[in-house]
Design a protein around this nucleic acid. Structure first.
Lengths: 171, 171
DNA sequence: TAGGTTTGTTTAAAACTTGAACCAAGCCCG
DNA sequence: CGGGCTTGGTTCAAGTTTTAAACAAACCTA
């Protein structure tokens, strides 16, 4: 089968997208590095934890929400723990598990970094979009993410309903 | 001034965006690494070169199009040169300049990798969007990129029209 | 209980990024 | 012309991150 190349419209969209995502991620990383001493990913870890029940989550669940590998997460969490922003706890229900729990200090750091972060996201993203476009962006990116999820992390267990992760957060 | 937090709609959009861009970049990197032995950025370098007049471009111009620092580009180009996919040439009109020129081998590698890459982009992105959404995506990301450009790389020269880079590609 | 899975970490090697420092070449202006 | 600033590009050192493979412990199911 011969390749279906991108149409001119698709090409324009693709290029604009690539440029925007690169620039945006750079800008956000820079801002957070500056103001909070950590890159976007690390901030996201704290942020996700802060919204979880009891501000804690199992490593695997955390990795899943952040769309990163467990190995990568282990590395990041180790640094955050060293900085005292979170703590690892044992899981009572599953002795293999370890739980990342946001510390008070971590929460404070997050609270202090949040305004600057939101300002950045706002000024570079939402301030430039109409309300309508915000909705469009959500639909578009949600569709993309969905496609990539079901495809990527497809394991045998996904085909066995009764074995699917339920993850009561073990909390 | 108190922070204007994100509205629920904005939050949803932001999260979907972050997840999608991460997953998409991962998927593309994986595919290209697999099929062409290089990450997305390197492929982009070859790709931009292949579309430039005489398949060559000055380093600074290349960095500008790719939205990366010159330092970062130097590193990448060094590797690509080592792999024989491009060659550095002296610039006749400006003895400071160096030009990255795609080699025949580089072009061949690109030709072979392109179908797989396009397939990936298509299946993860465009196949999931309506024609209308493609247009929306372009407008949205173009707006974002524009905002980030004028802000970021603002140098004194930008305010002096007659000194702005014209870059006749020196070719 | 055996066999296969899942969890999370470890390890070692690469790959990448950054920022500053630097040199050579170009440009400006008195 | 010649000093002084700017630009193009690389180099360097340091640190960060990423990956993949291997692993042990704990789980699960038959």
């Amino acid at each position: 089968m011969t390749t279906r190349w991108l149409t001119p419209e698709e090409q324009r969209a693709w290029r604009a997208y690539v440029a925007a995502s690169l620039l945006l991620e750079d800008a956000i990383d820079r801002q957070l590095q500056q103001d909070a001493g950590m890159p976007h990913l690390y901030y996201s870890i704290l942020s996700v934890l802060s919204e979880s029940p009891e501000r804690r989550l199992r490593m695997t669940d955390l990795a899943e929400r952040l769309k990163i590998t467990r190995s990568r997460l282990t590395y990041a969490v180790t640094r955050l723990e060293k900085d005292g922003l979170l703590r690892r706890e044992a899981c009572r229900y599953d002795k293999r598990g370890s739980i990342a729990a946001l510390t008070d200090e971590g929460f404070t750091v997050l609270e202090r970094a949040a305004p600057g972060h939101v300002d950045t996201v706002r000024s570079f993203l939402f301030d430039r979009l109409s309300e309508e476009q915000v909705g469009q962006l959500e639909e578009i990116t949600a569709a993309i993410a969905q496609g990539l999820q079901e495809d990527g992390t497809r394991t045998a267990a996904d085909d066995v309903p009764w074995r699917r992760r339920s993850s009561p957060a073990c909390s």
